[in-house]
Design a binder for these strands. Structure first.
Lengths: 119, 119
DNA sequence: GGAAGTGCTTTCCTCTAGGAAACTATTAGC
DNA sequence: GCTAATAGTTTCCTAGAGGAAAGCACTTCC
């Protein structure tokens, strides 16, 4: 008989692992953290604004990632009735709940840089 | 003249974004969070233990991810002088500093599940 | 009337992350 | 001698992530 997993074999762990997988799949990809981070800083931004703010991203990726995030209710898209049509993207209340994760990651990243510098 | 980015154009933001990128690149991939999470729970584990605990991972991925993590000083590898040679993997003090990030992600994932359930 | 700005979508391409399976090497037990 | 467990490495394959560039629809300025 095959040995069974022990450490992770409690319900709490299973749920935790599942939760982490969920979070990762929602925030997967190279750009979502940057987009969300940018939208948290500057609340209302247009497509072109984001294209300029998020360094290196292209139109296809931005468009796709924005759709993903909107589908998950993390950001909201509002078409404005302006002369050349404009769109405003902003974080939802729900999206703002990601701030603690982003903060922790930023904190850790900064500490990492410092620890590497010291070596 | 091309319009310039505004929101992210402060030093604080640049550093934050860089820090987030660093963190993401170190924790990139499908498995690192699971491996680290597992090692935080059950401090000392062998290769085969991890293979059983981290559900779905294969030998190649596990081997590669462990090397990555060791290179970044997040885990330590100790070869034991036993009859069939065994290896012990465990988190370093430094690796433990990731716990807050993992906790936040787990918390958020759990909340996400609940919010989806309510809709 | 043409350039330039808005907000995308679509096509085409490449690169790599990740999985399956086979293989190495060593030791212990039956 | 065969099986099983230890800890990996190597090879082969593919699905998908992501980039570059072009196209599309609309408007406004000069």
């Amino acid at each position: 008989m095959k040995k069974k997993a022990v450490v992770n074999d409690t319900q709490v762990c299973q749920i935790r692992m599942q939760a982490i997988s969920d979070t990762m799949s929602i925030l997967s990809g190279k750009w979502k953290f940057h987009i969300i981070g940018t939208l948290i800083e500057g609340s209302k931004l247009g497509f072109m604004d984001l294209l300029r703010e998020v360094d290196g991203i292209g139109t296809k990726m931005l468009s796709k990632e924005l759709q993903d995030l909107e589908m998950n209710h993390l950001i909201s898209r509002t078409v404005m009735d302006t002369k050349p049509i404009t769109v405003q993207y902003s974080i939802t209340k729900y999206g703002e709940t990601l701030a603690p994760i982003i903060d922790e990651m930023a904190k850790w990243g900064v500490a990492y840089r410092q620890s590497v510098y010291k070596l």
